[in-house]
Amino acid sequence: TRVETATETAWISLVTALHLVLGLSAVLGLLLLRWQFPAHYRRLRHALW
């Protein structure tokens, strides 16, 4: 049971790290898009909202 718990903890930390990385890359990508294509971003936002 001790090994299982350790594996579970490792998986949880791995998944958390993955989610953090994905979230950060998504935010960075959005910022980059907004910085590179302001007109396109505004049009996209206008279409979405």
Rank of each mutant, 00 (worst) to 15 (best):
T1L: 14
V3D: 00
E4G: 09
E4S: 11
E4Y: 12
E4Q: 10
T5L: 01
T5C: 01
A6I: 03
T7P: 10
T7G: 08
T7M: 13
E8D: 11
E8I: 02
T9S: 12
T9Q: 13
T9K: 13
T9I: 13
T9H: 10
A10V: 08
W11V: 07
W11H: 07
I12T: 11
I12D: 00
I12V: 12
S13Y: 14
L14C: 01
L14A: 04
V15M: 06
V15K: 03
V15N: 03
T16V: 13
T16H: 04
T16A: 12
A17C: 13
A17L: 12
L18E: 02
H19Y: 04
H19N: 00
H19G: 03
H19E: 06
L20F: 13
L20V: 14
L20N: 00
L20P: 07
V21D: 02
V21Q: 00
L22G: 09
L22H: 05
L22K: 01
G23T: 11
G23N: 08
S25L: 10
S25W: 05
A26W: 05
A26K: 07
A26Y: 01
V27C: 12
L28K: 04
L28W: 07
G29D: 07
G29S: 13
G29I: 11
L30S: 09
L30T: 09
L30K: 00
L30G: 11
L31S: 11
L31V: 10
L32D: 09
L33P: 07
L33E: 05
L33R: 06
R34F: 06
R34S: 09
R34L: 05
R34E: 01
W35F: 15
W35M: 15
Q36S: 15
Q36E: 09
F37Q: 00
F37P: 01
F37T: 04
F37Y: 15
F37E: 00
P38N: 14
P38A: 15
P38T: 12
A39I: 09
A39N: 11
A39R: 15
H40M: 10
H40G: 14
H40A: 12
H40F: 13
Y41M: 09
Y41F: 15
Y41G: 08
R42V: 07
R43D: 10
L44I: 12
L44G: 03
L44W: 07
R45P: 06
R45A: 06
H46E: 14
H46F: 09
H46C: 09
A47W: 08
A47R: 14
L48G: 00
W49T: 08
W49R: 03
